[in-house]
């Protein structure tokens, strides 16, 4: 593509001309390298978003599929979803779910990453096996977790009762005060492999001699973490957190599989509510509007975070 060879017998161009064509060639090569990715991104992300955006401004029902008629609704869909009685609860749950999941995944993931920095037999194998939760289709892990968390016969309650920790058989999925906690727990479980992998990679990149120097200076384990590990890991941490939030905020299948947003909306989030509007009540306009609100929240978070991060790096 970029390998230009002058045809045999052609007159060599003069210096300036060659430089210009070379530079033009560079430009062209760069564009050709970039083009497939850009085209793909526009087709598979840009187009759906534009479509979703338009749909939120229309009254879009089951009939629309057959007749093609979707009357213009202006901002009515947005008004309807924001004033709905579930909205504030769903918003709060979304925040709690995201914050709780990220915190749990990150702390456990980091702890495990640090642990696996040690050299011990079977380290690599154990670390690989920890990624398994990620490989299990959610249909399956959702069903398994539902049995484990079952109030009467679930493995967790049987275990807790056996060690006399919670003999009362708490209703993990059926109590309004525990359901959100339960879905957060399962989501943490699913997210640990991602955090572990990336944080472990980040730790591997920290030069060994820095630790040795710190140890020579008499730094304790805690101090080494505080002054060596953490500052050097920061860039990786920021990636994990930003991607984590962005992925978590739109989590749908975990919640639908475990509690379906219940009981009594106790684990309903913006994502699940948007799904319910579109695919249970077939009000696609409102579903799209709520989906767009979700994207907007995510976007605002990312922008704020990136700004803050850039400032921190600049200072």
């Amino acid at each position: 593509m970029a390998e230009y060879e002058p045809p045999p017998g052609s007159v060599p161009p003069d210096r300036v001309g060659r430089w210009q064509s070379r530079r033009g060639q560079d430009r062209l090569a760069q564009l050709l390298f970039l083009a497939p990715a850009v085209i793909y991104m526009l087709a598979f992300f840009g187009y759906p978003v534009v479509k979703n955006f338009l749909m939120a401004l229309q009254t879009y029902s089951t009939s629309t599929f057959y007749t093609g008629e979707a009357p213009w609704a202006g901002l009515a869909n947005y008004r309807a979803v924001i004033t709905s009685s579930v909205f504030s609860k769903a918003l709060l749950n979304t925040v709690l779910f995201t914050a709780g999941s990220i915190l749990g995944q990150f702390v456990i993931g980091l702890g495990l990453a640090v642990f696996f920095r040690r050299r011990f037999p079977l380290n690599g194998l154990l670390r690989s096996l920890l990624l398994i939760p990620w490989l299990i289709p959610l249909i399956v892990s959702g069903a398994v977790w539902r049995w484990i968390l079952d109030k009467d016969n679930g493995a967790l309650n049987r275990f807790l009762a056996a060690i006399h920790l919670a003999p009362g058989h708490p209703g993990w999925l059926t109590s309004t005060s525990l359901a959100l906690l339960a879905v957060i727990m399962v989501n943490i479980w699913i997210g640990i492999p991602f955090n572990l992998t990336i944080l472990y990679g980040g730790l591997q990149d920290i030069p060994e001699d820095l630790y040795e120097a710190a140890t020579l200076d008499g730094a304790s384990g805690r101090q080494r973490f505080r002054y060596v590990t953490w500052p050097l890991l920061r860039p990786v941490v920021s990636v994990v957190l930003v991607l984590g939030v962005v992925y978590t905020i739109k989590v749908l299948d975990v919640i639908l599989g475990l509690t379906n947003g219940g009981p009594a909306n106790a684990s309903q989030t913006i994502a699940t509510q948007s799904y319910h509007l579109s695919f249970v009540q077939f009000d696609f306009g409102q579903g799209a509007a709520l989906g767009n609100i979700l994207i907007a929240i995510s976007l605002v978070f990312a922008v704020i975070y990136l700004r803050a991060n850039r400032r921190a790096v600049d200072e």
Binding site: F45, K250, G291
Partner: peptide
């Protein structure tokens, strides 16, 4: 980065 925020259903 933004593309990561778009829900799969959309």
């Amino acid at each position: 980065l933004i593309s990561q925020m778009i829900p799969g259903i959309v």
